[in-house]
Structure formats: C-alpha cells, structure tokens
Amino acid sequence: MTLAADLPLWAALLIAFFLLIGAGLALIGSFGLYRLRNFYDRIHAPTLGTSWGTAGIILASVIYFSVVESRLVLHQLLIGVFVTATTPVTLILLSRAALYRDRVAGNPDVPLLHPLTTPLRTSSPENNPAAAHENTDEIKE
C-alpha cells in the first residue's frame, strides 16, 4: 500500500473489478472441487480458476504495475501463457490415468476401451454381419 495513494480512480476500480472476478472464480472452482460427487465431474471445476481466474488477476496486475510505473509492464502475461499451455496437459494426463485405473479396477461406470469393436471380436462369425457380407461376395465371385 505504499504506492497506491497516487493511483487514479479509474485504475483502482478496474484493478478491484479484475481482482474480485479472478479471486471469485478461483473460489467457485475450488468449491466445485470440494462439492461435486464424481472424479470426472470434479476435474472440470478447477479450470475456472486456471482460465479466467488467472486471467483476471493477471490483468489486474498488468494494469496496476503499468499505472504505478507509468510504462507498459507485460511480464505477468508470461504466467498466463504458461498456465494456459500447461493446464490442459496436466488434466489430460491425470484424467487418462484415472480412466486407466478405473478400467483396471473394473468400475462399471466408465466406458470400455473400444466400445464398438470389442463385441465384434467376442461374437461368433455366424452372427457377425460384416463377415456374412464377405461370404456372400465370395459366393458371387
């Protein structure tokens, strides 16, 4: 609070707006992580905090340091680029690990690995329509 006395009013209002948007979205995301029932529901919730929560706080930081130092300060955008690039990677890896663990544990709520080709492989050739079609072609030739 040392440099904030000479801040203009519009800058203070913009900074407060973006700060409260960002922190509120992070709080909603963490509350969803605490509250939702299933893991696959829960993995969606913290992305509120990592998408627009981070963007709001970074915009507030950019506005604050640009106004206080009276030049354009953009190095906070590096955090935004980094978080935007890494969050989908971590969540894809984590959700695939969770899906693998659920399939190994035999959880009936998750889909199978190949839901279309697995019944065809286990069925007999007489009941398989694709194989029957191949047989008729051979008879015609």
């Binding site: 801040l7 009013l9 922190a23 992070a26």
Partner: peptide
C-alpha cells in the same frame, strides 16, 4: 483509490 485497492486486495486474499 487507496481504500478501494486495499479492500479489493484483502477480499481477494480471503477468497
């Protein structure tokens, strides 16, 4: 503006 900034920063820290 200092008051607005102080309270918004405090609320964001609490959240």
């Amino acid at each position: 503006s200092a008051t607005i900034l102080y309270w918004s920063v405090t609320l964001a820290q609490i959240a």
